[in-house]
Computed example of a mutant assay.
Amino acid sequence: MSSRKIERTQRGGGDACRVTDYATARAVLRSTDTVQAGLGVETVEKLPPSIRRPVLYRDGEEHREHRRQTARFFTPRRVDEHYRGLMERVADEQLDTLRRDGTADLARLSFRMAIEVVSAVIGLTESRPGLDRRLDRFFPEKFGRPGFTSLTGISWVIRQNVQFLGIYLADVRPAVRARRRQRRDDLISHLIDEGCRGGEILGECLTFAAAGMVTTREFVNVVAWHLFTDEALRRRYTGGDEPARVALLHELLRLEPVVGNLKRRTTAPLALGGTELPDGALVDLDISAANLEPHVDGPGLSFGDGPHRCPGAYVAIQEADIFLSRLFALPGLRMVTPPRVAMKPDISSYELRDFIVSVRPPG
């Protein structure tokens, strides 16, 4: 293990390091002496102790038990049996929009696809129309910094609270009410069984919205962009069977992870190669760099690893393949306008917008 791939730094007056080595990054993600950092955990830690944290921000035995109990919702067998038909139907509905109108924003079509699929998996199925617009407002391209020391900070506090309330009233509360009347076999029903309150269920749903809906949209868009601009790659994808297509998607995700950086904080002294980190050190894992090591195959660490590995990995890849394989089978499909690209530097995440495609002849 090369110590050159572990860079000691100082961040906020505390110990920190940046890891670009695959084996070290994977070891940190699997370590029981690290906990979640970044991804807004600092804000969540300010919540009263009586409020249960979403699963993304929990660690230890409580987190492991929750993942054990909910793993059944994301197994390949369940996804194939319960959601493949839904994915095919929703993909066809979105592509019917493209056929009907002749042109469409691929970012919008893929987002609606991801929303429908993840909503079915977690049980967010009684929503009023417009969940895609509500989520776009909740996850804007540019985030401000909420706070109470400036007018801008206060406006962002108000803005986010309004968005929270809007999603709760239009999406979460109807789903919770329906499942209190009649339990179903989904994540929201499970959370109700555990005694979670409405606000706590909202937190879990928003976690899955970010980790399942938003990220899948970006991945579908970046794959489509590659296929539009690389004819050999496009032929390889469209000419392959499902296992071959999935392998290609894994490879593209390894090279283009939607979240390029993950962070952990040590809860005990931790030895990384020739570096000894103290308790409380921040570890910044450069997933984009680690995935480039020659021996890495599959998606690498793009879905994370260890206790916090993305439970919906199989869901995301299957829905991406169903949507993309149908999209690129459309006669006359072409890219009209390449996507506008933005980055979220905190997590090295890309966003692709205004991605216009068409099935009409040019001119």
Rank of each mutant, 00 (worst) to 15 (best):
G40L: 09
L169H: 12
L262N: 00
L292C: 06
L330D: 04
L151E: 11
G274Q: 14
R8S: 14
G240M: 01
P331Y: 05
T20G: 12
M343N: 07
R68N: 09
L135F: 08
T97N: 01
A329N: 04
L135W: 11
L135V: 08
F164Y: 14
P361G: 13
T152S: 11
R4M: 14
T103W: 07
R30S: 08
R340L: 14
P294N: 09
T266G: 04
G312Q: 00
R134D: 11
E251A: 07
G123A: 03
T238K: 03
L109D: 01
L227P: 00
I347C: 02
S150C: 11
P269Y: 03
V223E: 06
D101R: 15
I192G: 11
T215K: 11
R30Q: 13
V157W: 05
E93L: 09
T43L: 14
L255K: 06
M1D: 08
V121G: 01
S349N: 09
R159C: 03
L292I: 03
I122E: 02
V341M: 09
V357T: 05
T238D: 00
A27C: 03
Y83H: 08
R58D: 08
H308C: 00
R58Y: 03
H66D: 10
L327K: 04
L56K: 06
K46D: 11
R58K: 09
N291M: 08
P243Y: 02
G280S: 05
A120C: 10
L324N: 03
K344V: 13
V90D: 01
G130T: 08
R254W: 08
G274M: 05
G298Q: 10
G195D: 11
R72Y: 08
T275I: 15
Q94T: 08
L47S: 03
L333H: 05
Q182A: 15
P48M: 12
V35H: 00
L292A: 13
G38I: 13
S302I: 01
G260N: 03
R53N: 07
F228T: 02
I192L: 15
S189Q: 13
R184W: 04
P278T: 10
C196Q: 05
R235W: 00
I158G: 04
G123C: 03
M343E: 14
K46M: 13
T215P: 11
L249I: 11
L262Y: 06
P243I: 07
T34Q: 02
R100N: 13
G38P: 14
F219E: 10
P339T: 06
C205T: 15
A120W: 05
T207N: 15
V118E: 01
F208T: 05
E218A: 11
S288Y: 13
R184A: 13
S127N: 10
R235P: 01
F74C: 06
Q36M: 12
L227K: 12
E42K: 13
P338Q: 04
V172G: 05
G13L: 07
G212V: 05
P278Y: 00
C310Y: 12
E42G: 09
L98A: 13
G166S: 14
C310R: 12
R77E: 09
H82T: 14
V162E: 08
A209F: 00
G102E: 01
C205P: 06
V341R: 04
D21R: 07
S127M: 10
G12R: 13
G312A: 07
R173C: 06
A247R: 12
